[in-house]
Design a protein around this nucleic acid. Structure first.
Lengths: 81, 81, 81, 81
DNA sequence: CCGCGGGAAAC
DNA sequence: GTTTCCCGCGG
């Protein structure tokens, strides 16, 4: 078998593995959407839920720095609560 | 002139007006990016700036409600500051 | 058990389900990165591979866009159904 | 004048420039909506018009993708330059 | 009220 | 630069 053919076959296999994994990833993304939908049906706000998921994923120090910076900008612009 | 031709011409004119406006819109969007770039060069954080722009655009009551809801979710999840 | 507590618990469960799914999604994304890495080690160009994957995935969408385009042309010519 | 005050003032000016530009952008976006509304009033379908506008805008990108596809096929066949 | 599409943000 | 996420509009 020629090298070019070998190479094509190898490429095809890599591409197919990736496509299979992309399908799985999409399936999980769809599951996540479903859970947000369930939560919404129970009266929770998806937007705020996404915010807390993001906050929990952040390092505690990073989170505090972000919040401190935002507070500073709010104060500078008279947006303090 | 046949109606079909008239209609095509009319459609073409509408499409071209829209495309012209889209170009203008893009030019302004580019200007906005430039301002964020300038601010960043002065040491400001663009991400936080976008947040305050969004907050200022929001109605005050809406903003307070959002913040209250977020605080409630944080408390429920032990994320209180 | 108080309603507030019930609600908090319910929220916590939704959040945890989402976080679990997000972890799975990330694991798969990491697997995909690994496959690109393997392919690269075999001499393939990851960037071009991503292009191929994207083009193959777009095929069905493209067909739909083509159909939309055809309909648009029909409309422009007054032949819309 | 204290540095903090200077900084606040500088931030305020950046924010106001951005807000001004955002207003202009919104005005143009509103104009675009008006044109779609006029076209609709003349019997054209806004949804299909948007599709046409998108396809026309994508033309140059498509050409680039086509070239990328050609290169990808070359690579798959071991003919990469 | 939902889904789609465009615009912005993260990696 | 690419991909993912969010918001706002249209149906």
């Amino acid at each position: 078998m020629a090298d070019a053919t070998h190479s094509s076959e190898q490429l095809r296999l890599f591409i197919e593995r990736i496509e299979r994994l992309e399908e799985e990833k999409k399936a999980i993304a769809d599951d996540i959407k479903l859970v947000y939908g369930e939560a919404k049906a129970e009266g929770f706000d998806p937007k705020t839920m996404r915010t807390v998921v993001r906050l929990r994923a952040m390092d505690k120090n990073d989170r505090q720095e972000q919040e401190a910076l935002l507070d500073a900008y709010k104060a500078a612009l008279g947006l303090a609560e």
